[in-house]
Amino acid sequence: MFWDFQWTFEVLPDLLRGLGVTIQVTVVGYLIALILGLLIAIVRRIPIFGSVLHAVMEFIRTTPLIIQLVFVFLLAPSTVSGLTVGIIVIGVHYSAYTAEVYRSGIEGVAKGQWEAARALSLPGRRTWGAIVLPQAIRKVIPALGNYLIAMFKDTPLLLAIGVTELLTEAQRVGSASFRIVEAYTAVGLLFLLVSVPSAILIRRLERRYAAV
């Protein structure tokens, strides 16, 4: 079999649309995971909320993402698109993991830092915002970066609720014209196009923040 460039160019717009969905899901879902995970990690330190939140997070981590996607999609009002449901569910799902990452980072901040903040009478807002979180987050940037990559790789699961992203788009155009190899190779290259720059970016962030 030889490579058909002509065909590849013809389907490229479809593939790029799929890539756009993949990126959209990953970026917005990841932002949700970053912010929600942080809130959960902080609220978990309040005794009453701690155990409840812990149970919820444990539940989310121990059930498959695909089931959560389908379940929420079926419960959601029909006006809400599969894409929206997908982004929210994947974001919330991953926040259960990022919350753990933040938690370990927060616990890694020396007790003396809290005590010095207290000795200076700093309000909780400053203690968290200017002292604890900057130190905690620096340490967990590599671990958070790993979840970005994992989430990127999980986006094809959105097929289960009818969202066609890059891989499903490729499957569709590929099997329609019996050119699966070209389609998947193109997908592979597009994935690389996204993941290599992301990996470089993550590595640079790591280097920048590891130096403290």
């Binding site: 003396g112 005590e115 010095a116 000795a119 002292i131 130190q135």
Partner: peptide
């Protein structure tokens, strides 16, 4: 009241 600690406890991110 102010306190100085044995381990300094400066904020390393500042």
């Amino acid at each position: 009241v102010g306190m100085v600690f044995q381990q300094f406890n400066l904020f390393p991110n500042m």
